[in-house]
Amino acid sequence: MTVLLEAKAVAKHFGGVKALRDVSLTIRQGEIYGLIGPNGAGKTTFFNCMTGLYIPDGGGFDFAGAPLVADAPHKAAERGIARTFQNIRLFANMTALENVMVGRHVRTAAGVLGAIFQNRATRAEEAAIRQRAEDLLHYVRIEDRADDLAKNLSYGDQRRLEIARALATEPRLLCLDEPAAGMNATETEELRDLIDGIRRDGTTILLIEHDVKLVMGLCDRVAVLDYGAMIIEDVPAVVQKDQRVIEAYLGA
């Protein structure tokens, strides 16, 4: 199996807090990779380092065979890494459709002159952007909310919209930060199907999640972080039984 992402001894600290201590892991092409751990373990920090929001204090990432240069967050998306946020970050006063259309930015090219003169290429591109965004809303099954402002969507729909927006960037790796947080059992079940579908359609997924049942049922492999250090990386069946993991979660 080809490796898509390799984290090499990534370290990050905030003052005295060591949020990540030399975390190394590999994510393979086409898998769903789970990242779990107690609150404050450093999961979100890992995402932020990978997507260029934070600059790691040590180590680095290889993505699709070339190093990720952590100098500008927009470059991660260009390379093919998309993400959602633990506390949803949508463009609140734009419609659902516009939110997804913004996601197409990185794969399209029209500039100011194109916009002003509305030449044929620009109009064609704009139509394609709209079409793709509509398709994606349909894909995450919120097409009937297309013209509503993002902030007026229900919580579950906002999570779906964030996923659609991330998919619009045509990622090779989709990183989801606690997508099931605050969802009820039915919604979680639907989300499960959605994530599984995305993977089947060819996108590799990195999933942070507290819902252990969801993670264990969905992921091919799981890594566990505790106090910024990785304690195990293995298939769910093994991770579930590991003494260190049980201790970490029980706070022993």
Binding site: L53, H74, A76, E78, R89, F91, V106, A168
Partner: peptide, 15 residues
């Protein structure tokens, strides 16, 4: 408009 709404999210989608 995306930058106006949420700069971090805008960066994350590659703007």
């Amino acid at each position: 408009q995306a930058i106006r709404e949420d700069e971090i999210a805008a960066k994350a989608v590659g703007i």
